[in-house]
């Protein structure tokens, strides 16, 4: 994992030097879990996504890196758990704290011919880190681990003006990751997300 990230962060800036256009973005990311919803199921607006992308030569393809994070939390009312020769009764919070790195590629095109709107569709591949936390009273139990992440994404870049380098960005994405936790009976992660934010483009 570390090797992969090192290679990505060395190669991508080098590629960017050759790129004509590139942009940074910072988005608020709203996610709804689709799998293991008995752990967390509610939509969470506590997420974000930042990244860097560059156009590859004169083509319509771009590539880049994405860093994303999300936090889910759900209250569980008082429950009694049987464990061997005993039981434990408590109310608790189930929490899922995650962050991910992905290398991504997109196909871009222009909409309207005025140089303002650029829809794109692409996919990101990388790694997702999940931390599962059970918080009860003043105590906490947790488990964590990495998984492989695949994230198809479609969105649009809307520049604030033809000569402006800043614009708004919106996208929808589907995340699938192989993360699992035997402690919390968590088998894989998938979610659908909507992100909105701004980008800064260098031309």
């Amino acid at each position: 994992m570390k090797k992969l990230l090192t290679v990505l962060f060395i190669l991508l800036p080098a590629c960017a030097l050759l790129a004509q256009e590139n942009y940074f973005y910072l988005n608020l990311d709203v996610n709804t879990p689709l799998a293991n919803t008995d752990w967390v199921s509610k939509t969470s607006g506590r997420g974000g996504k930042a990244g860097y992308r560059f156009m590859i030569g004169e083509s319509r393809f771009s590539a880049g890196v994405d860093f994303a994070w999300a936090y889910f939390e759900e209250y569980a009312p008082t429950e009694t758990f049987q464990n061997g020769n005993g039981a434990i009764t408590t109310d608790y919070f189930k929490k899922l704290n995650q962050y991910s790195f992905a290398a991504s590629g997109q196909y871009n095109w222009e909409l309207g011919g005025q140089g303002l709107f650029f829809p794109y569709a692409g996919i990101g591949l990388g790694a997702l880190h999940n931390q599962y936390i059970m918080a009860y009273n003043i105590y906490e139990d947790s488990d964590k681990g990495w998984g492989f992440l695949a994230r198809p994404e479609a969105g649009i870049l809307a520049r604030f003006g033809k000569r402006r380098s800043m614009g708004a960005m919106a996208a929808v994405h589907f995340d699938y990751a192989t993360n699992k936790s035997d402690d919390y009976n968590y088998s894989s992660y998938s979610a659908v997300g909507f992100q909105i934010g701004i980008f800064l483009m260098n031309r």
């Binding site: 910072l26 988005n27 608020l28 990311d29 607006g45 506590r46 997420g47 974000g48 930042a50 994070w69 999300a70 936090y71 939390e73 209250y75 008082t78 005993g86 039981a87 434990i88 009764t89 408590t90 109310d91 608790y92 919070f93 929490k95 704290n97 918080a135 009860y136 009273n137 003043i138 105590y139 934010g197």
Partner: peptide, 22 residues
Amino acid sequence: TLWSCEPEPDNLRLLDQLVVST
């Protein structure tokens, strides 16, 4: 995006009853 970082759970909600292990 800063707001989206992990917050503390609602502590008072968790502290209004003791954890009971037998």
